[in-house]
């Protein structure tokens, strides 16, 4: 039982996605081929997992800019825990995954602690910790790309079940998990309430700090999973494993319809947002648009998405 409202703003992303697919496939029918759809799905897997993590933080009205650093940190831990090219890994195989995710969650929790207890604005706390994560990864990896030799980790990117890469299954599972967290757990509901009206939640006797820290930890865990997927795809652990992902994740969340002010939107909106961004990326290459046009289209898309999500406020100037 989810709480949803069918309003223009919430069906808009769905219309945009459908419109994009129709428009691109008219121009180039091969866009709708099964193989291409699978490619889009595979390309969306890691960004979706990252964007889900970011969605939680944005829903409660904060922001997490540590995506790239958290991923670098998690990726370095992963390299240390599995068989790798420099030969000093723990060789835990798949058992490394819970360790990596726990480490990433802890890293997220630390951002939450800095944000709440030291009263550092979330964008600064997460940005700073993002750099710390990059630094730790650089030290651990010696500034190198350390190849991941472990076959079970590599298999996450290369094996296919029913002709679909495993990463798609992982992303689908994370989506379901995120949906349950958002709609069926206390922490999920509280982060939504927090994004709606923080003062009132405080007045209701909820320990808001703990909520925030926990949400940052959950987001960190999602970034950890995203880092595993990205590292598996790259076949290596690197401090730069997440480069470029922050922009994709945040813009997907916004395009999907989750308000940056918090309180409205959610994981399904983010799924749509990720698909819109990835369909657009894929479609524009298929249509053969020059790169500078592609970047322009993506930028305009984000601005339009924010406009569509904003309640009309007359002549008020947005800050």
């Amino acid at each position: 039982m989810t709480v949803t409202r069918l309003r223009l703003a919430s069906v808009m992303p769905l219309l945009v996605l459908a419109g994009l697919c129709v428009a691109i496939s008219i121009a180039e029918p091969r866009f709708l081929s099964i193989d291409n759809l699978i490619r889009i799905a595979a390309a969306s897997a890691a960004p979706l997992v990252l964007a889900l993590g970011a969605t939680f933080v944005i829903l409660m009205g904060s922001i997490d800019l540590s995506v790239e650093g958290s991923m670098a940190f998690a990726s370095a831990i992963l390299a240390a825990c599995v068989a790798n090219a420099n030969g000093a890994g723990l060789d835990l195989g798949l058992a490394a995954l819970p360790l990596v995710i726990a480490a990433a969650a802890l890293f997220g929790a630390l951002i939450g602690v800095i944000h709440t207890y030291l009263r550092v604005p979330s964008f600064m706390a997460s940005l700073g910790m993002g750099f710390v994560g990059l630094g730790i990864a650089t030290i651990m990896l010696g500034g190198e790309r350390v190849g991941i030799v472990d076959e079970s980790i590599r298999a996450l990117a290369l094996t296919r079940i029913l002709n679909l890469p495993i990463s798609i299954y992982v992303a689908t599972f994370m989506l379901a998990l995120a949906w349950v967290i958002q709609n069926h757990t206390r922490i999920g509901r509280r982060m939504l309430a927090l994004g709606g009206a923080e003062q009132l939640v405080v007045a209701s006797g909820v320990n808001v700090r703990h909520v925030r820290i926990l949400v940052f930890a959950i987001a960190g865990a999602f970034f950890g999973v995203g880092a595993v997927l990205a590292s598996a795809r790259l076949g290596a652990s690197s401090a730069l494993v997440g480069s470029g992902q922050l922009f994709t994740a945040i813009s997907a969340v916004v395009v999907g319809g989750t308000a940056l002010t918090g309180g409205s939107g959610g994981v399904l909106a983010t799924l749509l947002g990720v698909l819109i961004v990835m369909v657009l990326n894929n479609g524009m290459v298929i249509l053969g648009l020059p790169t500078f046009v592609q970047q322009g289209v993506l930028g305009i898309m984000i601005i339009i998405a924010v406009l569509l999500n904003q309640p009309i406020r007359g002549l008020a100037v947005a800050k």
Partner: peptide, 24 residues
């Protein structure tokens, strides 16, 4: 809180008795 349900508002901060196995 405007963006959550009536029921959630009524029991905000006192939801513990409705949680079973971590789920509401």
């Amino acid at each position: 809180v405007p963006n959550i349900s009536i029921a959630e508002n009524i029991f905000l901060g006192n939801e513990a008795r409705f949680v079973k196995f971590g789920r509401i």
